[in-house]
Design a protein around this nucleic acid. Structure first.
Lengths: 177, 177
DNA sequence: GTCTATACAGTGATAGAC
DNA sequence: GTCTATCACTGTATAGAC
C-alpha cells in the first residue's frame, strides 16, 4: 500500500499505468484486480484513505490534543519528515492541480478542510479570532504546498526547510500579534 | 496558442490527448503535426516558452525596472489576474509536481529561477541582504503556488486573494525589518 | 495547409489455467 | 490467490488525398 502511494506520487494518476504498478509491486494484473475490482480509481481512493489516516493520527490529532507549542512543532517536523524535505510530493496537492475530471475532488477537499480545521483550532487556542485563525491556517498550508513545488522545480531541496522555517517563525509572530 | 496552454492546464500533460486537442482547437491531427512535428512534447515546449515570454514582460521586467513599490504591486496584481484568482492553475508548477519523466525540468527550473532572480533583486533594492532576499523571494513564490493549490483543493476561490494579501503584507514587514 | 484514413504500441480490464 | 493470455479501446504518430 505504501508502495502504491509512491507510484502515484512519482508518475501522477494518468502516468501510473497498470503495467508500471505490476512492475513495481511485483503483483500480476489478476492479483491487483482481485484486490481492487474498481481498478486504478479504487487503488487511488485506498491510497488517499491511507494518507488521510496517517495525517489524522500524526498531524491533525496531535494539533488538537497536545499542548500548543509542542503541537505546532510536531506538525512542522512531521510534515518535513513525511515529504522528505520536498523530495517527496504531496499526492493530494498534485491531484488538486491535475484534477482528473474531478474524480477525487471530494477526497481532496476533505483532506485540506480537515487540515484547515485542526490548524485553525491551534491558532484559536493561541488567542486568534476565528476568522483570522482560519486565514492564517490557510496561509500556512499553502506555504507548505508551495515549498514542495519550489524544491522540486528548482532541484534544490534546501528550499523546503528554508521556507518551512520562515513559516514557523511567521506562526509565532501571528500568535503574539 | 493560448488555447493550447489552456488545454494543458485543464487536463495536465498526460491527460491532454491529441484527440482532445484537435477537438478544442478545431484543427485536424495533420495540421497539428504540421505546426509541431515533435508532437505533444514540442507543443508543450512552445506553450512553456509562450508563458515565459508573458512573465518576462509582465512580471520579471517590471520587477527589475520599475520603482519598487509599484513593481511589487504590479507583480501581485499581475499574478492574481493571470491565475484568475486561483481558478486557473500554474502549468509550470503543475509540471514540477508531475514531472513527466523530467522531460521539461530544464524549462521548469528556468521559469522559477528567473522569477527568483527578479524578485530577489527587488528585495535587495529594498535593503535586504542577498542571502535573505533570495530566501524571502522563494517564500513568496511558494506562497503564490500554494495559494493556487488551496483555492483549487477547497473549491473556494476566496482563498487565493486572502493568501496573496497576507503575502503582500508580509512583504512590507520583511522590507521594514 | 488542412483533412481523412490508418498504423501500431500502449491502455485498463477480464477470463481461465495453475 | 496469483499469473498468463487476450480483449476492446485509446494513445501518438504518419501517409496520402484534396
Amino acid at each position: 500500500m505504501p508502495a502504491l502511494g509512491e507510484i502515484f506520487r512519482r508518475y501522477g494518476y494518468e502516468g501510473a499505468s497498470i503495467a508500471r504498478i505490476t512492475e513495481e509491486t511485483g503483483l500480476g494484473k489478476g492479483s491487483l484486480y482481485n484486490f481492487f475490482p474498481g481498478g486504478k480509481e479504487e487503488m487511488t481512493e485506498a491510497v488517499l484513505a491511507d494518507i488521510h489516516r496517517w495525517f489524522e493520527e500524526n498531524i491533525y490529532r496531535p494539533l488538537e490534543t497536545q499542548e500548543p507549542d509542542a503541537a505546532i512543532r510536531q506538525m512542522f517536523e512531521g510534515v518535513s519528515a513525511y515529504f522528505q524535505s520536498g523530495r517527496r510530493i504531496c499526492l493530494v496537492g498534485a491531484l488538486a492541480l491535475e484534477e482528473t475530471r474531478n474524480r477525487f475532488s471530494a477526497e481532496v477537499a476533505h483532506y485540506f478542510h480537515r487540515w484547515l480545521e485542526a490548524l485553525s483550532a491551534y491558532f484559536r487556542r493561541k488567542g486568534a479570532l476565528p476568522a483570522q485563525a482560519k486565514e492564517i491556517a490557510s496561509y500556512m498550508i499553502a506555504g507548505i504546498q508551495g515549498a514542495i513545488i519550489m524544491a522540486r522545480a528548482t532541484n534544490d531541496v534546501s528550499q523546503f526547510p528554508a521556507i518551512l522555517k520562515m513559516l514557523e517563525a511567521n506562526c509565532d509572530k501571528s500568535c503574539r500579534a
